[in-house]
Nucleic acid binder design. Structure first.
Ligand SMILES: [Mn+2]
Ligand SMILES: [Mn+2]
Ligand SMILES: [Zn+2]
Ligand SMILES: [Zn+2]
Lengths: 147, 147
DNA sequence: TTTATTATTAGTAATCATTATTATTTAAAT
DNA sequence: ATTTAAATAATAATGATTACTAATAATAAA
């Protein structure tokens, strides 16, 4: 029999795994990795698997309910999809929000016209955060081979 | 016997592996991954190993002779360290240069004052490049689970 | 030039994040 | 209640990157 489902294709089911992951991401102000999300969510859902976390995070990303931030080969997730930039500390690797960026900066507007269909953009600032700079006696050496 | 080497610590040796990798990165206008660099450089140095390529790329990055661009979990490298942004195609995953960004945009200047020591920044634009848009019959579907 | 020192390399094994697979469970439509 | 396929848990596999180690080679010292 032909389904009368309005939205053709697959139907999306509401599961507690999905809700708890999204709730967690919206509750924190940090930018956790899939691995950390897995560890945290497992406190509420002890039987959840890593694969489920990765798959749900991918779904949420594809539905624009979360944003993915790739830092040093590791994907971090942001439950805040509002327009903002990020500051990445090169020492502790924490990711901080920068909200006071002009919402639609001139360069963004210009690029949207020039290159064509720009769906979105990301701005990353790199440096050493206040906490880390407080701990540093001097400027850190450059040639460490640490990733 | 005590060495009279001026710069304390390890001395950097010039090797052809190092030179050929850097030359290759400076010769191309693309943004190759370590794996592609390995395949290309092996044409000139058939005995070079993957580990060497990764290590040298890390060295060059730490010496600010190349830039690293993390896209979808894969690190790409840029032999052009001048200030420019990138456009990443969500279909073919190619990385294009955007040079006509204002060198020291206002938002950057503001942030440098607010957050503190900002060493550098990166701006990524996402969308579908001209080539890929030409091939598309319609706008691509959203909910593909492809990474 | 010859020898000594040690950074660098080649080859390979190991690690880590992420994805694929598959049998089972379960939300929701009928 | 029965049916159907989306979603899950558990686990295996993959792929990028790093670690290890013995051999090599660039530079310094003799
Ligand atoms: Mn954020
Ligand atoms: Mn570039
Ligand atoms: Zn820090
Ligand atoms: Zn493209």
């Amino acid at each position: 029999m032909i389904t009368n489902n309005k939205n053709r294709g697959s139907i999306e089911r509401i599961t507690c795994q999905k809700e708890i992951i999204l709730d967690y991401l919206k509750s924190v102000k940090t930018h956790p990795s899939a691995e950390l999300i897995f560890r945290e969510v497992r406190k509420k859902l002890p039987r959840i698997s890593q694969g489920t976390v990765y798959r749900i995070l991918n779904n949420l990303k594809n539905k624009d309910k979360v944003k993915a931030i790739s830092v040093g080969g590791i994907t971090h997730f942001d439950g805040d999809v509002s327009s903002h930039a990020h500051f990445i500390c090169q020492e502790c690797h924490n990711i901080y929000d920068i909200f006071d960026i002009c919402q639609e900066c001139q360069i963004i507007k210009e690029q949207k016209l020039k290159v064509g269909k720009i769906k979105n953009y990301q701005i990353y600032f790199y440096g050493y955060c206040k906490k880390c700079r407080a701990k540093m006696p001097r400027l850190p050496k450059k040639d460490s081979n640490r990733k």
